[in-house]
């Protein structure tokens, strides 16, 4: 029972990335993680962003669904 509860807590912590009860990790590590995410985002966007966003949006225009 204790092992299962511990595993559940660890799994939940991994899911939310928070090691404690809403503690959210220390500020420094959060900022560093945030900076990594933004750098990766810049790179991902740079690779795909078109030269003409308006043209892209028009070309991928969708009809309404349900």
């Amino acid at each position: 029972m204790e092992t299962r509860e511990k595993r559940r807590e660890e799994a939940a912590a991994i899911r939310t990335g928070t090691p404690g009860d809403g503690g959210g990790g220390d500020l420094g590590s959060l900022r560093e993680a945030g900076a990594h995410l933004l750098r990766a985002g810049d790179e991902a966007i740079r690779k795909v962003l078109s030269m003409d966003s308006e043209k892209f949006l028009e070309a991928t225009r969708q009809e309404g669904g349900e």
Binding site: A12, A13, R15, T16, G17, T18, D21, G22, G24, G25, L30, A33, G34, L37
Partner: peptide
Amino acid sequence: RRVLNDLEADPARLSAS
């Protein structure tokens, strides 16, 4: 509960989630 706690403290805590 964890997600609500983080959102209440600061939604930026979940900026990767």
